[in-house]
Design a protein around this nucleic acid. Structure first.
Lengths: 246, 246
DNA sequence: CGCGATTTGTGCGTGTCTTCACAAGCGCCT
DNA sequence: AGGCGCTTGTGAAGACACGCACAAATCGCG
C-alpha cells in the first residue's frame, strides 16, 4: 500500500485506495484475455483500438467487451476507440498486477517441472518465489535457476516474503495436506492442479485446473456430434452452438 | 416427466445411437467432476451414495447435482440414493468415454513433455496416439514410450487411425497453423494451451486453458481482499463469495 | 461552424444457471 | 399392513449473463 498508483479516472482523494468496483465474476474471467489481446496489439503498433477490433482479437462479442470495460469506468473515446496503453494500465491495476506477486509452487513432478519453466508466469506479473516438494530425493534439484526446497520449509519461506498465491501440482492424495500448510502460512489464493476438491477456510480462494476434465468435455461434444451425424433423422451437423469458450 | 428413460446399453435396438439428451453446457462441465468423485467413492467401497454425499465430495451444492443428474434421466432411488457403479456407467456413456479416444499432442516443449507424461489421460479414457513437433531437433526423441514425429506427418497418422482430439501445446505464434493442420485432417475438437485465440471453421470445438489467466484471476481476488481489509470503512474479509469454482 | 461518420456506453428483452422448498416415492421397522 | 424417516426429482423464483439496438458523444472535413 505504499504504492502510488494512478487510479482510475478522477476518483478524488489521492492516496486512497480507489475502491475497486466489484466486477461480475464473468467479467473478471475475461479481463486477462483482453489484457493479452491488448499486449498483442501494442506490439503490433496500435495506439488505439475499437471495441470491435479488440473483441475480434480477444475472441468475444463486441457488446460484451464494451459492457465489461464499462464496469471499470469510462476509458474509451466515442468515435475513436480505446487507448491501448491506458487500457492496459487500467486492467493491470484492477487485476492487481501492478505489484509482482510471489508464487509458491508445490510439487515438482511432471507438471510442476513444466510450470516452473513456464515463461508465461514471469512475463505476466508473477514471480516464482519458491519450488517445494515433499520428496527428499527431489529437494536440492535446480530447475530454471531455482533450487527445490522441502515443503516443510514453507513457514520460513513465507516469513522472508509474503506468498500471494500457492500452486499445487502434487498428486491428489497429497493436495489437501499441502493446501492446509499453505493456508497456515497465510496464503489466501490457491491454484490447484490436483484432481480433487480442496476444503479451505472461508476467505481463501481456490481455482482448479484439471486437464483431464477439459478433454472429457470435448469428448462429450465429439460424442454428440457423432450421434447427430449418425442419426438419419433430421438435423445435420451444423449447429448454432459451436466453438464454445470457457 | 412421464418418459421411459433411455439408457445406454439396453436401449432396445442394438447398434442404434440412443439420442443424447442435450445437456446444459454448465452441466456438461460438471459431469467429469462427478465422475471423478464417484470413482473415489467406488474405491472407498461405497455402493450407493446420496446426492448430499456425492455433492460434498464433488464440491457442489446438492440441489445442483440432483438437477444435473436428472438431465441424464432418472437413475436414483428415493430414500436410498444413487447406485455408484450405475451412475459411473451412465456418465461415462454420456461423455462418450466408452470408447477410448485418440489424442494427438502437438508441441513437446516444456508443457508438452508434462502432458505426454500425465497419467491422468490414460486413466480417464484417452490414449495419446501421437506426439508431434515442428522442430526437427526434437523429432525422434522418445517420451514415455512414444517417439516424437514431425507435425507434417499428421495426415499419415490420421490416416492410420482417426484422431478425436488435438492438443496444442506450442508457442502462441505456431498455434493457428497447427490448428489449421489439425482441422484439415478432420479433427473437430481442440484443446488449446497456447495463449491466443484460434479461428476454426464451424463445427469444430475449441477449449482453451491458459495457466497465466488463472493466476491473474486469483490476483484480482487478492487485490480485492487487500483493498477491503485496508479500508477502515466497514466490512472485513469475511465475504459470502468465496471459493468460487470454474 | 455545422454535418456526417464513427464508436462508445447502456437500457432492455431474453435466455441460462442457481437455489429453495416440497411433493412423491422408496425402504425399513414395528 | 401401515406409518415413518429419508432422499429424489422438479416447479417456481430469483440471480446472473448475454446481445441487440440506439442515444449520446466525439472527430474530421468541407
Amino acid at each position: 500500500m505504499s504504492q502510488q498508483h494512478r487510479h482510475p479516472g478522477a476518483s478524488g482523494r489521492p492516496g486512497a485506495v480507489p475502491a475497486l468496483p466489484d466486477l461480475p465474476e464473468a467479467t473478471v474471467a475475461r479481463l486477462p484475455e483482453y489484457l493479452r489481446a491488448l499486449h498483442d496489439l501494442a506490439e503490433t503498433g496500435y495506439e488505439t483500438v475499437s471495441s470491435e477490433g479488440l473483441a475480434t482479437v480477444a475472441g468475444v462479442n463486441s457488446a460484451k467487451l464494451r459492457k465489461d470495460l464499462s464496469h471499470l469506468g469510462s476509458y474509451g473515446t466515442r468515435g475513436v476507440g480505446y487507448d491501448v496503453a491506458l487500457l492496459v494500465e487500467q486492467i493491470e491495476f484492477v487485476l492487481g498486477l501492478t505489484q509482482r506477486r510471489a508464487v509458491a509452487l508445490v510439487g515438482v513432478g511432471n507438471l510442476g517441472h513444466a510450470l516452473a519453466g513456464y515463461a508465461g508466469f514471469a512475463s505476466r506479473g508473477f514471480r516464482i518465489a519458491a519450488l517445494l516438494d515433499a520428496d527428499p530425493s527431489r529437494v536440492g534439484e535446480e530447475i530454471n535457476g531455482l533450487v527445490v526446497r522441502h515443503v516443510d520449509e514453507l513457514p520460513r519461506i513465507a516469513d522472508e516474503e509474503p506468498i500471494a498465491i500457492g500452486v499445487i501440482a502434487t498428486p491428489a492424495a497429497a493436495a489437501q495436506a499441502v493446501a492446509d500448510q499453505l493456508v497456515s502460512v497465510g496464503v489466501t489464493s490457491i491454484l490447484n492442479f490436483a484432481p480433487c476438491v480442496l476444503s479451505v477456510p472461508e476467505g481463501v480462494d481456490v481455482r482448479k485446473v484439471d486437464l483431464a476434465i477439459e478433454l472429457q468435455i470435448l469428448s462429450f461434444h465429439e460424442h454428440r456430434k457423432a450421434s447427430l451425424t449418425a442419426l438419419p433423422s433430421g438435423r445435420a451437423a451444423t449447429d448454432p452452438q459451436e466453438a464454445i469458450g470457457t
